[in-house]
Design a protein around this nucleic acid. Structure first.
Lengths: 358, 358
DNA sequence: CTGAAAGCGCTTACAG
DNA sequence: CTGAAAGCGCTTACAG
């Protein structure tokens, strides 16, 4: 009985509109309904609505008004069939956790919503078969383009996107040669961090970072060495808090001069570093300044003190990737190659200098 | 010059296939191409491919083989126009950070990919206008249904979804009355946590949790009181690590018996609690057992020791929400109401008992 | 068993 | 200035 009520209720809502509609058996209001209501042909209705063709301004306005009144919305499927544009794009990622993909996605969506473009999001993990399924679904749905994104600049997605007949743009993942790839300029980010430490008077700066096998780790380390000095130490390790801890132990148990500035390869390491320093009674930022990398709010905002860190501007990266697929989808030409986007230093309290107003 | 090269390269890829195609001016392989290649009509080709109509098995097989050979894939837009099914659904969320939405999304996608359904994901923040734009885009694209999700069980999305002519399902956000809403069973989760502490022999258990204004906080607190005892204290505060810290200070500075078990309202608070206990020289789990809530890997995996916590099974929640919109889209009846999904205790080392094999 | 025709909802030459 | 016709790529009665 409840079951029946349930059905009755839940299906009523979608039927309602159908019953109201003039002649439509399907329930949706079509351009035929607009034409009928306005007493004109569907061709004229179409032209009025799309601001094409020639006709009296008042006719055009009247048709538009009527369309709005009866709640007409063009069927994008029908439109897409004609125009070969679906106004959808696919976003493929292997970043399950969403750490990097979410801001990229936000940027893409932000850039494309004004163009009426919607985004299919597919997380494919490291599974080629799953990737294939999703890519085929996208292609079947006639996406205007695909953006591939990931969690590492030096890894490809587990699927080959190089021979599709839609444009593909890579963002924060390794792209095929000859394509457009957007990535953060990690060297620039590292430079910002180290220069900031130097500006605050830090002279003995060390770099505690992730595994050397990561391209971005090497980029950041090289930039660090160039700015801070080739002789200064770089400590490679895992991407974890505990490594930050251990690295501090290593540095402070060593004899010799102690660092007064630490540039960390990511925010988690920085968190471990800050906690370890506090446990040793070393004050941050009075005794040692610490900078992170990623600006991962949940980490950077919860360290004590809050973390000064480098933001890779992933949202902007997504925005540009979005506009680029759109350009390609519209047939505009885009120069292939790798575009490095500048980073931004987010000043909180872990370095001092946060009251400088810089 | 480089610019021209760029153009030449990038547009070549999409054109290639076009040139290969037999008669197609558009470049995509259509059912006409299949029919021509097989020497039959498009009606027959369609029936062969869809396993409908009557025809010799060998004809059917031959057509399928030819279709596969020439790389035919049906145009979902054309199909959708006929069938009134787009095999897409929209996912709306106001959870920018993705903390809750990502697992939900993963579950939805996981459940629907086998049905050929793709997901439009739209983050609308708290912006009704943005929500409106995205919903209209979805409707224009003829989504078969919409799933609304969020970050809080007792808040609605900033947009009214109650009068659309597509089915709507709510997952981890407050739904309209009379609709289908999926949510975690927070009382059950709290019960699991407290019973686990009790089972490990903890007798003086306190609850440190988030703001009392949250529905889930009250649910968890009530369940805690019911299991642990009405007389035991509940400490409400912000959802932050620092609150976990402060709460420990409060408890241990008070005179009176100290807790031997702490059930925290989320993993961040638990992290603050564990750090504060360690700073006081109190051993976890030997002296005090700590349980969290959320199973947010990035926090739960990085506490020292790793955190035993409650998982809300958001992926499963997404899976069920996905299957439910699908059912509604296919016209099957679904009983409206709130479905509470059970939680799961994830045993790590912050309580002890992790070697019990339970 | 097979194909011609109509039609899904739209747009766009082309005639008037 | 306006409308009939053709067509996008497909499916589905309907005739043969």
């Amino acid at each position: 009985m409840t079951f029946f009520l349930g059905k009755a209720f839940l299906t009523a809502a979608f039927r309602e509109e159908q019953l109201e509609t003039a002649g439509g058996k399907t329930g949706r209001i079509t351009i035929h309904d607009v034409a009928a209501a306005a007493g004109i042909s569907i061709s004229t209705a179409s032209k009025a609505l799309n601001d094409t063709g020639r006709m009296g301004l008042e006719t055009r306005e009247r048709v538009k008004r009527i369309a709005a009144e009866i709640g007409y919305r063009p069927n994008a499927l029908a439109r897409g069939l004609l125009s070969k544009r679906s106004f959808t794009i696919g976003l493929l990622t292997n970043d399950t956790y969403g750490r990097f993909t979410l801001p990229v996605m936000a940027g893409i969506s932000d850039a494309l919503v004004d163009h009426g473009v919607s985004v299919f999001m597919c997380a494919i993990e490291e599974d080629p078969a799953l990737g294939q399924v999703h890519v085929e679904a996208m292609l079947d749905k006639q996406v205007d383009g695909i953006i591939a994104t990931g969690k590492r600049l030096d890894r490809r997605l587990p699927i080959d996107l190089s021979n599709l007949n839609v444009p593909v743009v890579y963002a924060f993942t390794e792209g095929e040669p000859g394509t457009v790839t957007f990535r953060s300029d990690d060297a620039h980010g590292a430079q910002l961090a180290v220069e900031w430490l130097a500006k605050l008077g830090r002279r003995r700066i060390v770099h505690i970072t992730g595994p050397e096998s990561f391209f971005s780790v090497r980029e950041r380390a090289n930039a660090y060495s160039k700015v801070a000095g080739e002789e200064l130490p770089v400590l490679f390790g895992p991407w974890s808090e505990i490594w930050g801890h251990d690295a501090v132990a290593k540095l402070w148990n060593d004899s010799g001069e102690k660092p007064d500035g630490i540039f960390c390869g990511n925010d988690q390491i920085a968190r471990g570093v800050i906690d370890a320093l506090r446990e040793r009674g070393i004050r941050v930022p009075q005794d040692v300044s610490v900078v992170g990398f990623d600006n991962w709010e949940i980490v950077a905002g919860q360290t004590r003190p809050p973390l000064t860190t480098v933001d890779m501007e992933l949202k902007e990266l997504g925005r540009q990737a979005g506009l680029t697929v759109l350009a390609l989808a519209e047939g505009r030409s885009v120069e292939p190659g790798i575009r490095k986007l500048p980073c931004r230093l987010v000043v909180r309290q872990s370095c001092g200098g946060d009251t400088l107003g810089i």
